[in-house]
Amino acid sequence: MRDDGLPRERTGDRSRRPRRRPGRRVALTAVAALALAALPVTGLVPDLPWGALDGAVAGPSDGAPPPAPVPDPLVDPVDPADRPLLVLDASGGRPVRQGDALPARVVGDAVVVLHGYTSNAAQIAERLEVPALVERLGAVAVLPTGLGHRPSWDAGTCCGSAARSDVDDVGFVAGLLDELRARGARHAYVVGYSNGGMLAYRLACERPEEVDAVAVVNATIAVDRCDGAFTALHLAGAEDRAVPVEGVDLVPYLFTGFPALADLPALAPAADLDLRVVPGAGHEVPEGAPTTVREWLATRPGPPTTDRAAVPVVAGGAAGAAGAVGAVGAVGAVGG
């Protein structure tokens, strides 16, 4: 038991306190800890009661107030060699093989796929159709799982135990990419959903030399500075209430806010961002998104262009979504 009354989650031999990040809004309340811990695993956040994701927590029908949010417990660091992996291998023309260790040799490309907050490798493999992705690219896909009871990644201001504990997830993923290249990978990509997409962005922002391109779904840039030069595909649900297209000041159960989609090019001025809004989609992986991601990666995206005007921001669907990105690009349909 820690001195603030919250439990410490043990995942290693050392304990550590998180450093404070400027501007992070944290409300330390222990009232709902047990109820929150019992919620099922989903994608970005647990299945929260009463529509908490829209930033205005409404009470239940009986008029009782909603439970106060509490942060996830801290976690201790884990040796990268001890972190579990799901590996799907279709490199060298072989059928898809599944394992838990990196192949001795990679013949073709490599993709690291990162799940959302509270999810895991197996779930994101299904939702992003990773077997079809590795078949299309003739690639190896490596799917790690984040730390914590509700697995998470330290993507900057989000999310969960990993972000609170300053887990070096950038170093962890960079190490995977280095090892995959050492074993023969020609290109190295990172694909991420939600919190996993935020980590993909953070890696590209801070270590752009590690990755040839990133593709994210329902994510955002969750760091203060993004100076890296990289190429990215970004698919955003027009009706996403967790990472809204129009941005949000504070998501109560995440203790952070997110920038508007239209602000991302200014946050990452050296990057080529192919931004697309998917009409009618919420925070789930949109129908057709896995196909769009694998066909985009199959084009072997090159280095960023210096001509920002040549990189369109594409939106589709609802007028509100189009208006959110109208200042930075044209309106069109999401496609492969």
Rank of each mutant, 00 (worst) to 15 (best):
D3A: 13
R8T: 05
R8P: 00
E9Q: 13
R14A: 14
S15L: 14
P18D: 01
R19Y: 05
P22V: 07
G23W: 01
R24N: 06
R24C: 03
R25G: 09
A27W: 13
T29Y: 05
T29E: 14
A30Q: 08
P40F: 08
V45Q: 10
L48I: 07
G55Q: 08
V57W: 13
A58E: 13
G59S: 10
G59N: 01
P67F: 12
P67T: 01
P67L: 13
V70E: 06
P71F: 01
V75L: 04
V75D: 06
D76A: 10
A81T: 06
D82Q: 12
R83Q: 08
L85S: 03
L86H: 05
D89K: 05
D89S: 02
G92I: 11
R94I: 11
Q98R: 15
Q98I: 15
V106I: 12
V107H: 13
V112T: 07
V113L: 09
L114F: 04
G116L: 00
G116C: 05
Y117L: 08
A121S: 14
Q123G: 09
E126R: 15
R127F: 12
L128Y: 11
P131F: 12
A139K: 02
A141G: 06
L143C: 02
G146W: 00
G146R: 00
T157R: 15
C158P: 00
G160I: 00
A162C: 00
V170F: 04
G171H: 04
F172I: 01
G175F: 10
L176I: 04
D178F: 02
Y189C: 04
G197R: 03
Y201M: 10
P208D: 06
P208N: 05
E209T: 12
A215G: 08
V223M: 03
A229L: 06
F230A: 09
T231G: 05
A232W: 11
H234R: 11
L235E: 10
L235V: 12
A236E: 12
G237Q: 04
D240E: 03
R241Y: 00
A242D: 04
E246S: 14
V248C: 06
V248D: 03
D249S: 15
Y253C: 01
L254Y: 00
L254D: 11
L254G: 10
F255W: 11
F258I: 01
P259W: 06
D263T: 13
P265Y: 09
H283T: 00
E287I: 11
A289Y: 02
T292C: 04
P301C: 08
P303I: 07
T306V: 12
P312C: 10
P312L: 08
G317H: 07
A319S: 13
A319C: 08
G323K: 09
V325Y: 09
A330C: 04
G332P: 06
G335P: 05
